[in-house]
Every structure is written in structure tokens, then in C-alpha cells.
Design a protein around this nucleic acid. Structure first.
Lengths: 129, 129
DNA sequence: GTTGATTTTGAGAATGGTTCTTGGTTGAAG
DNA sequence: CTTCAACCAAGAACCATTCTCAAAATCAAC
């Protein structure tokens, strides 16, 4: 079953981007390209691509969801104060292996490993009152 | 600096609970206890407790945020189809070690490691069409 | 090609968790 | 008794995401 053309475009746009994109971002970018797509359709396809194991997603503390191709195994440091995130160079988990017993029939597609804490700037600001 | 009494109550309610609680859950529980608290206040304190490193939080695919005391190092398998989550017994990362160079002044308070995929039931359902 | 059924789409409305606003309450200090 | 500041609650506001549903596209037979 080949990927629908619409989904293909969406996935290409994600791959073309350097960073992660939110649903709104994607919609805005596609809007001014040769293949505009309604917001509802963007979200519909993002969900499907995620279930196909082609797209990963993580949630910011703000509640916004960011999407990226699965093959990007990036992880982040996120500040619980200002919300800024920085990307880690390497994945500390790498091949995190779960035993079949732990999985119990679950078929893993991707994982998210995020560290939350205080960024340098916010620590300084707190100490200075 | 001692914790304000209101924050203490909120934290106790979280510790008393077996599982994670959403902001709404907490508000509902406190409502019928001896120390009711407005919804806005619950969220205010949850954010503060998070910044103090006493509370952790993770986001479900639905966008809902779940809170727990930091000392609980639980991680989950989450189905990208039906959204159900199951708890892992042990933390595969354990002491996830980040070098000072990787941290760059960032002060980690907690981490979340979540696996996303398809649960047994949803795989079956997909195959059956 | 035409017809009719099925699927996909998109504009706008609805949803719902979270945050903001506003005005009231409390409590300590003077 | 004032004053001032901190804290709080109720409801409005916000906004990313989802839902609705009619129109458009696709497909399948004829």
C-alpha cells in the first residue's frame, strides 16, 4: 500500500526542515507551497504517519506538539521556567532494549527522552531575585 | 524557605495517590477535602513545585498533563492509536549520565522517557481491518 | 463517458486543558 | 483602625487540536 501523495508531501516538508515543526508550522509552510493543505488534514495525516512509524512527536510544556521524521533521534533539555529547549548531540539511551516480557505485545515505534530542569539564564535570574 | 501550607497540601495529595494525576483530577480531589483550592491555584502551585524539583510531569498524546512526585521514577508505554498507557516496572535509563559539557549550565530536575507505539489490541484491530 | 457509491478534504465551529484578569480576602506591621 | 502586600477564587480568555458536514475528488462498474 503506497503512501498517499498528500502524506508524502507532508513528510517531505518535515524532512526538508532542519528542526521540528508544529502542526501550525506545517500548515503555514504548505499553505504557500504548490500543495496547500487544510489544517484539519495536516493533523489527520500527522496522526496516521505517526501510527505508521514514520513520524515522531513530543510535547512542549506549553502543550504544543512538535513533529519530526522518526529517523531523527534527537533529545532535549527543556527549561521548566522559560520553556526554552536545546538539543542534545547524542542519544544517551541509544538502543534502549525492552524485554518481550516488559513489552507484552506492545510494538514500539519511537521513544522520547527529555530532561527537564532550569537553564543557566533562569538559575541566574532566580538567584538575583 | 519552608513550603507554603497550600503547596504542602497539594504535594501530599499527589503522594497519597497511587497513580499520576492531572491538574483537573487534583482540583476535583481537593475540592471535596478539608482544603479546597481553586483550579488556577492548583496550576500555579504545580508549576512552582515543578521548578523546585519536587514534582514531575509528562504529557499524554491528548495534550493532558499528568503530575507525580519526582521520587517516582516511572516510565510508560503509550499507544499512538488508542492512547492507553501502561507503566514500566524499571527505568531503563537509570542514572542517565549527561556530561557537564552536554549540560552547559543546565540543572536537571527530572526526566521523562516514554515509548510510543501500538498496543496489542490496536495491532489486532488493524490487521482485522 | 456516466452514474452512483465511497473516500478525502477544508472552512469554520466546538472542545477542553491551561492561563490570565479582576477584584476580594487575609494577615502582619505600624 | 489603617495600610500594604501577598495570596486566592471565579470566570473569562486563549489557543492548539479535533469535530462537523457539505463539497470535491476518486473509484468502480456499466
Amino acid at each position: 500500500m503506497p503512501l498517499a501523495a498528500r502524506q508524502e508531501h507532508l513528510l517531505n516538508e518535515l524532512r526538508r526542515s532542519n528542526g521540528e515543526l508544529s502542526g501550525q508550522d506545517l500548515h503555514a509552510r504548505l499553505r504557500q507551497g504548490p500543495h496547500p493543505m487544510g489544517l484539519a488534514t495536516v493533523y489527520r495525516h500527522l496522526r496516521q504517519l505517526q501510527q505508521l512509524g514514520l513520524v515522531r512527536c513530543r510535547h512542549l510544556p506549553s502543550g504544543e506538539a512538535l513533529y519530526a521524521p522518526v529517523e531523527r533521534d534527537e533529545h532535549h533539555l527543556t527549561c521548566v521556567d522559560c520553556g526554552s529547549t536545546t538539543t542534545l548531540e547524542s542519544c544517551p539511551v541509544h538502543g534502549a532494549h525492552l524485554s518481550p516480557a516488559q513489552l507484552g505485545g506492545f510494538k514500539p515505534l519511537f521513544h522520547t527522552l527529555e530532561f527537564f530542569g532550569l537553564c543557566d539564564a533562569c538559575q541566574q535570574r532566580q538567584q538575583a531575585w
